[in-house]
Amino acid sequence: MSQILKVAMPKGRIYKKAAELFRQAGIPIPTDVDDSRKLIVELPEAGMEFILAKPVDVPIYVEHGVADIGIVGKDVLMEENRDVYELLDLGIARCRMSVIALPDWQPGIQQRVATKYPNVASQYFRERGQQVEVIKLNGSIELAPMIGLADRIVDMVETGQTLRENGLVEMEELFGITSRLIANRVSYRMKSEEIQQLCDQLQKVIQPPAASETQEIG
């Protein structure tokens, strides 16, 4: 008998794209779940149970095994560094992590970087031999260089629209971001058939990156 998979799904931006991908892969996810406010949704036809979580919490649920698998952005995985299997690049919610500053930025004596991703930012600058002060912010990161809280920021860029509107420029790209399918260490073994089957179904419908983006990988 096949076992129910507990899936930690990220609420918000990524959810609809992920649910759509599941549907393309032939997994019956009703569309009315998309706008529901329920936190736990049973999907017996799909053999799944969705746990709707804040995206940054998805790897925590999966690491502790309260969810078997989860869908989460690479940005969160890099920042949280959790002990989970990263099984598939789903190719959705494609964007990038970048260093951003005002166009006239010059390295100062005391460099400050504001970000929602303090671990990612610290590691990036350390690897480049730069000692910077990292300030953690929780939103509207673009404000920091504009009002003088920091001279650079590290943040996710999707279209670059917000940056342009606020007169900021992308200086360097850290890495590309897409959503990933992750699995708990024990579930990956105890529910190996269900998880492998889901991977195979999803792999058939995953869109490869557009030609202009392929060279950035690696």
């Binding site: 989970v84 990263e86 099984l87 690049d89 990933r180 190996s192 990988i217 690696g218």
Partner: peptide
């Protein structure tokens, strides 16, 4: 446990299609 990264690394190396398929196949050997 980063299988995505494993596949990305593989495509970055100069391997024959056959070798890459073999190494990717490793992920299914359970």
């Amino acid at each position: 446990r980063d299988f995505v990264g494993f596949r990305e690394q593989l495509s970055a190396f100069s391997l024959s299609a056959e070798q890459r398929a073999e190494l990717e196949g490793l992920l299914r050997l359970r």
